[in-house]
């Protein structure tokens, strides 16, 4: 049985529970065991990065040191956590002095880090470890007729090439095509959604979000799937305001990619927490209500 350590991060434990629930459900359905990292702490997000290099890396490295004991790859579904943990690894690998300093601090609390943890995104694990062939065997429902705009956001494709192209990633497109859906032409797939800007500088954030939503509507997508909790919130929560501002009809559902994948795997509404999203896709709901086809 395949096993991974799982680092949900703060977002998935509070506002973005649906991502957490559906992510666990999908991996369970595929026969992969996720072990939640014991006593993980917040990765520090981008905020700590702007204070002090040692502190920000040390806060993230506590998680990595804890994860090292499991001797497994670490899955981080939140894009921000994924980047920060990877960045901590990269900074420590390239700067020995920094690494020694961080480790000295970790030693004080009885931890020791040897730089051996690989941080992975669930999409990466699905495509490269489990593989489309295996997922294909587990399909219970076809997503036939569903037009999907695949939105990757920034942090899982940049700054470094992790597992997909940085300008035109296709892993998620291929995944949903394989499930029977149509991945529409979507030029905004790696555009920035504004991150924390809706909180501090709303008018700029609205411009960015509008472009991402409008490109999907323009290409007649039924829904947008995303890999990042913050993007999901930004794209979904401010649609009404943006409709008013730009005088365009938008209203498009935004799902975590694990939710839509879960539908194809025959999981039910509660297992995917689909009703916790604000905007519900009628088409997806219809597929959800079909009875799953048992394998012959």
């Amino acid at each position: 049985m395949m096993e991974y350590t799982y680092y949900p991060g703060c977002s998935l434990h509070s506002v973005h529970k649906p991502y957490d629930i559906s992510c666990r459900a999908v991996f369970k359905a595929l026969g992969v065991n996720l072990i939640e990292l014991e006593d993980w702490n917040c990765c520090g997000a981008t905020f700590y990065m702007s204070i002090d290099e040692v502190t920000s890396i040390a806060v993230a490295a506590r998680n990595l040191a804890l994860a090292e004991k499991y001797e497994l790859d670490l899955i981080a579904p939140c894009s921000s956590c994924f980047t920060i943990l990877n960045k901590a690894n990269r900074f420590m690998k390239s700067n020995e002095q920094l690494f020694l300093n961080v480790n000295r601090v970790l030693n004080e609390v009885g931890l020791d880090y040897k730089l051996s943890v690989r941080v992975r995104h669930p999409l990466d694990v699905l495509i490269n470890d489990i593989g489309l062939e295996i997922i294909k065997l587990k399909i219970k429902k076809s997503l036939n007729g569903l037009r999907i705009a695949n939105y990757y956001g920034c942090q899982i494709v940049r700054p470094d090439k992790y597992f997909d192209d940085r300008e035109n990633p296709t892993s998620m497109d291929n995944l949903f095509e394989m499930l029977g859906a149509k991945s529409v032409y979507y030029p905004a797939k790696v555009k920035c959604c504004g991150g924390m800007l809706p909180t501090v500088k709303e008018e700029i954030a609205n411009d960015l979000i509008f472009e991402i939503l409008y490109r999907a509507v323009e290409n007649k997508a039924d829904l947008i799937v995303t890999t990042c909790p913050l993007c999901q919130m930004n794209l979904e929560a401010y649609q009404k305001k943006i409709e008013d501002k730009f005088k365009e009809k938008i209203s498009i559902p935004i799902y975590y990619f694990t939710q839509v994948l879960g539908v194809a795997l025959g999981l039910n509404e509660d297992e995917l927490a689909i009703n916790k999203n604000f905007i519900i896709s009628e088409k997806l709901k219809k597929i959800l209500e079909e009875t799953p086809v048992e394998e012959l």
Partner: peptide, 24 residues
């Protein structure tokens, strides 16, 4: 939608993290 909670989740070993932040 039941996605909002006002209770702060805390880690078990708060002391260790505080020490890490202080020392670093």
């Amino acid at each position: 939608k039941g996605r909002l909670s006002f209770k702060s989740e805390a880690i078990k070993n708060k002391k260790a993290l505080k020490l890490i932040i202080k020392k670093s």
